[in-house]
Design a protein around this nucleic acid. Structure first.
Lengths: 239, 239
DNA sequence: CAAGCAAACTGAACTAGACCAAGAAACCCT
DNA sequence: AGGGTTTCTTGGTCTAGTTCAGTTTGCTTG
């Protein structure tokens, strides 16, 4: 039997072991050492197989806490413009937001380029971690133009959607969005916020919001646990 | 020094070693055993570090052939509606397409659902592998409605864009597209077409094309090497 | 000179352990 | 009952090798 066949077998055996084990989405898997007792292999090989299941999005891990069965992916319609909490709850899941940072700072070169301003111009920086059904799945860094949203830091930024605030308190509607999407590895700041191992695969979504006058008003960098979402989108192509 | 620090150090040391080594994008790295001579660690640890650089998209591997420095990502505008070859060449890269399969078959449940037909209805199945600058980066499976595109298999499907064929030969314009995006692991069919290890991280793009009458005419599943692309998109949100 | 074959190299996969530090749980004392 | 401390479990990382199979390369032969 070729070696790669064995790896494939191990993955299948492991998967059967897990699914027949009457595990439900979000449940913790037995410990690596316990799994070994049923699998006749070594820890490193087992971890390799677990990592592959992780890459496929069937299981995930929380750093030093264990492996878990992945819940179904959240469907995220990029153009629906739905706030996070509404999007999550419309799919019968429970949403939560935690505020990690909120202060004024100087725009980095990247942020400045995106917002069409000079490097070092003051911006509001808001960093949040968001959960679905108690699991941290999203780490977001927002950067807002200070001149568009004066004193926005005074509001309750954990409870309320930013776009909602824009509309209600500042009469700014997001009328155009630009996205950049890609998959990379987690930086260790985002990793620790998501209880994930640094370098684990992540879906990055960078977003720039334009208001009704075409002005770029804010941008954000979203890092999603890659097994937690499926992006959807429907539109007319330009050509 | 904590263990994770060492892992991080190794990654940095390795990265410095590579960049100062005057490697250019697409170049092959020294063999794992050669790298070990400079790094004072073991093979497994080294491979762990290489895998992390791979997850970040800085290097990639071709199965049993070695590790390579990643070229810059191709920017893929989802709504531009540009054929692959034009998109690639407009970014001064060289495009190539290889036809892997082209035949009539029965629609699977998934394909049937997407195209709004009954399972088992005949469809054309076209499978292609596409390269940028000689590197296989994309594996695509197309499924076309037979009634929309009779005898399309007679055309040269490697040389020509499908949407171009639709328009020129069948007077069908793609006037609406629906996407589903996510990141998963490579299945071993796609993996071997891309010379990649099965289970390596991949950006999946599923696309359903609608014609000018709103009819779903074809769908495709694209599997991109995750370090090869950055998706972009600009549109007005619906709310 | 070209084609075919064999050897060397290289990544893929695996074995069989070990130590450490972060979490979780149990425990104890106040 | 509550808060803090200790203990135990668990994942994270590492050592030091081996075996196997696909690629590449170079040599030989017709």
């Amino acid at each position: 039997m070729p070696a790669s066949q064995q790896a494939h077998d191990l993955r299948m055996t492991l998967w059967e072991l897990l699914t027949q084990h009457t595990l439900r989405p979000g449940d913790r898997l037995p410990s690596e050492r316990q799994l070994l007792e049923h699998l006749n292999t070594t820890r490193i090989t087992l971890r390799e197989a677990l990592s592959q299941l992780e890459a496929e999005g069937r299981i995930y891990r929380e750093s030093r806490r264990g492996w878990f069965l992945s819940p179904p992916r959240l469907r995220y319609d990029l153009l629906a413009g739905l706030p996070f909490h509404e999007m999550v709850e419309s799919q019968r899941r429970r949403a939560a937001t935690e505020l990690l940072e909120a202060h004024e700072t100087a725009a980095s070169a990247t942020v400045a380029r995106r917002l069409g301003m000079a490097e070092g111009t003051p911006v509001y920086r808001i960093v949040r971690a968001r959960s679905i059904d108690g699991r941290r799945v999203l780490y977001v860094e927002h950067h807002l133009r200070v001149d568009c949203f004066p004193d926005i830091l005074a509001f309750d930024l954990a409870a309320c959607s930013l776009t909602e605030l824009y509309r209600r308190e500042y009469a700014i509607r997001v009328s155009r969005v630009s996205f950049e999407l890609g998959s990379t590895g987690l930086g260790h700041r985002a990793a620790s916020a998501l209880h994930a191992a640094p370098g684990s695969p992540v879906q990055r979504i960078t977003r720039i919001n334009h208001d009704q006058n075409g002005r770029m008003v804010d941008c954000d960098d979203e890092y999603w646990r890659h097994d937690a979402i499926e992006l959807t989108l429907s539109a007319a192509p330009q050509s």
